[in-house]
């Protein structure tokens, strides 16, 4: 119970720190959002009115206090670019980002587990070297470059493959939520799901490759280490096959170091959505963030940065809990 309170407290402290930093940085950005909203030749009076409307006529600390008070009521202010509540924009676009992140993480996990288990199970030098080499390559090249490579490859060799957007606007389907992939799955609209996947798979793959490589390296190393332990030899004397031992004995132990690494890498993946969304015109909060910066949409940037920070923190917490759950030695000490 005490632990819970401490973690909640530290979440709020970090978020507060993030919000102060971003608030101060943003007030120093040259170029002001009001000029961008005004039609050419607007009067000073109109400008002053607008500044008052968005609270930009007060001092920076005063602005921060007002902003913080509103945030306490989940009011992140109005976007100057879209003239809509920031909260509404974020809620509208977050699902697209979450789906992309989820899909990418899923791909990364499947690839990493498949390759690590395969390498350790086969125990063949050439296969091990090949998997090490692939992982090294996938990890050295950042997701931004993977995206460009995919875009190039599609243009040259598979022009039918879409490289922009979430779906074809001409064949747009009706969805009750913005979680298109999930919704099409749970409502059994599999052809719609397949069509959506065609759009999602390339950005998700680009995001997932470095993460997949990172997990593979740690998991494979941990599996190899576990397979050298005495309990594996004892399991052999119980007549278990090598695959059964890898899956039944080594994997659980190898999960422990893997969880710790994966959470760190997952935050990189989420940070990566900012660019990947831009590259594939994916309508999530990442691409929205870039356009908000370019248009000096301060309230929107603040809101999105806080959302990212919150997600990062939650992932860290979740991984700590998972870590405890995975390691029985920690579980009983509580």
């Amino acid at each position: 119970m005490a632990r819970l309170l401490v973690t909640i407290g530290s979440i709020f402290l970090t978020l507060l720190g993030v919000s102060v930093v971003i608030f101060v940085i943003l007030r120093l950005v040259p170029g002001d959002p009001i000029s961008m909203m005004l039609p050419p030749g607007a009067t000073d009076e109109v400008r002053a009115n607008l500044e008052r409307l968005y609270g930009l006529d007060k001092s920076i600390p005063a602005q921060y206090v007002i902003w913080l008070r509103n945030v306490a009521w989940l009011d992140f202010g109005m976007s100057t670019q879209f003239r809509l509540p920031v909260m509404e924009i974020i809620l509208d676009r977050l699902p697209a980002t979450l789906e992309l992140v989820l899909l990418a993480s899923l791909i990364a996990l499947v690839l990493a587990f498949a390759f690590s288990i395969l390498a350790v199970w086969l125990q063949v030098d050439s296969a091990t070297l090949a998997i090490d080499g692939l992982a090294g390559l996938a990890q050295a090249i950042p997701d931004f470059l993977w995206a460009l490579i995919f875009i190039l490859a599609v243009t040259l060799f598979a022009p039918m493959m879409p490289i922009s957007g979430r779906f074809d606007p001409r064949t747009a389907q009706d969805f009750a939520t913005n979680f298109y992939l999930l919704e099409s799955l749970v409502t059994f609209r599999f052809d719609a799901f397949a069509e959506l996947m065609r759009y999602a798979v390339l950005p998700a793959l680009a995001l997932s490759l470095p993460l997949a490589a990172g997990i593979t390296r740690v998991l494979k190393g941990a599996l190899e280490e576990a397979m050298a332990q005495d309990y594996v030899m004892l399991a052999q004397t119980k007549g278990k096959s090598r695959l059964a031992i890898v899956l039944g004995e080594a994997l659980r132990n190898a999960m422990i170091p893997t969880i710790a690494l994966t959470s760190v890498q997952l935050t990189f993946l989420i940070g990566g959505t900012v660019l990947i969304e831009r590259q594939f015109s994916w309508p999530g909060i990442g691409s929205t963030a870039i356009s908000a910066v370019i248009n000096r949409d301060l309230p929107l940037i603040q809101g999105i940065v806080l959302v990212f920070a919150l997600i990062f923190i939650l992932i860290n917490l979740a991984s700590n809990e998972l870590y405890r759950a995975a390691d029985p030695r920690l579980r009983t000490e509580r």
């Binding site: 332990q229 005495d230 309990y231 030899m233 004892l234 399991a235 052999q236 004397t237 119980k238 007549g239 004995e249 659980r252 132990n253 422990i256 995975a326 390691d327 029985p328 030695r329």
Partner: peptide, 20 residues
């Protein structure tokens, strides 16, 4: 091996899987 033979290992600390 499973049916007819068994091993009592040297180091009991590392011969039991810590996760099971």
């Amino acid at each position: 091996l499973k049916r007819d033979m068994a091993l009592i290992p040297q180091d009991p600390l590392s011969a039991l899987n810590p996760c099971r």
